[in-house]
């Protein structure tokens, strides 16, 4: 199973949300990084067959994206902002969506629902009304519903937004566990989510692809571009103006500044091993 995207463009009136996007996405987890408004959700929706493209080609496992019914039958989608009918119980909501996914056999539906709810640790909430679920539980229910038809492609849009750190890590692990031989596309603006779960990624910015390739390749790109400086307060303002600062840690008399620079920004600066977040910042700002 492979997704091939060629020259994909999406316009909303005069605004271009995607500009000539070329991507090849294979099995395993694929990260889609980018700031808010980069076009990630637009791309996700096109792949989920709920948004028409303006131009270009999208091939999903040998099928053109215009074959919506066939494509919908092989995908699972977890939108960024979703909910379910609040008066339904967890089981009822899952059963309703199973029927919409075309699973006719009642026993098969029931078996799937129990198995998936167990996987996402919601087996004790089968009768709980959707309105009574916490944010984290709703997200887990979201991933369970996306897997109800055993999809070959799983598209998850900003799944960790609004979750506390512990829930985020659990959710990431859950996705990694499910990926297997599926194509899992994880869209996020949190670099850490990609770093710990994806092998390949693309960085989108204002509709353009800024980077596509492996996570390793991204880190390589940022090698010797990330520096740590223990700067005096008076020097910090200078560094902050001149270089993209990734993080700061305040010490007693100095500030530990992590920044991006093509060459050593100060005499006492030491090169640092880049993380995906550093590399992402480097691509977005530093490379310029």
């Amino acid at each position: 199973m492979k997704i091939k995207i060629k020259d994909l463009t999406k316009n909303y009136g005069s605004k271009q949300a995607l500009r000539n996007v070329d991507l090849d996405i294979g099995e395993g987890m694929f990260g889609l990084l980018g700031p808010n408004g980069a076009g990630k959700t637009t791309l996700m929706r096109i792949l989920a067959a709920i948004l028409d493209k303006s131009s270009g080609m999208v091939d999903v496992g040998g099928l053109d994206i215009s074959n919506k019914k066939e494509i919908r039958s092989m995908l699972g989608y977890l939108p960024q902002d979703f909910s379910m009918f609040p008066s339904m119980s967890v089981f009822e909501a899952m059963d309703y969506l199973s029927i919409l996914s075309g699973i006719k056999d009642r026993r098969e539906r029931k078996g799937n629902i129990y198995r998936l709810l167990e996987k996402v640790n919601l087996e004790n909430n089968i009768k709980t009304r959707v309105r009574a679920l916490s944010g984290g539980m709703k997200r887990r229910l979201g991933i369970a519903q996306a897997l109800i038809n055993d999809p070959k492609i799983l598209i998850v849009d900003e799944p960790t937004a609004g979750l506390d750190p512990e829930e985020r890590i659990r959710f990431r692990n859950l996705l990694a566990e499910f990926s297997g031989k599926r194509v899992v596309i994880l869209s996020t603006h949190i670099a850490g989510d990609v770093e710990y779960s994806c092998k390949n990624l693309a960085i989108l910015d204002e509709g353009w692809i800024r980077y596509k390739g492996s996570v390793y390749g991204l880190l390589e790109r940022a090698k010797n571009k990330v520096w740590v400086v223990h700067a005096m307060q008076k020097d910090f303002s200078f560094l902050n103006r001149k270089y993209p600062v990734i993080s700061t840690v305040a010490g007693d008399d100095r500030i530990k500044v992590r920044l991006i620079a093509g060459k050593s920004p100060a005499s006492e600066a030491v090169p640092a091993e880049p993380t995906v977040e550093d590399a992402y910042m480097y691509i977005m700002k530093g490379e310029e």
Binding site: Y77, S83, M84
Partner: peptide
Amino acid sequence: IKDRRRKMHELINSRKVS
């Protein structure tokens, strides 16, 4: 209208159902 108001429309729209 309820589908959209309950933010369930994208879950429904991406299903196989005609």
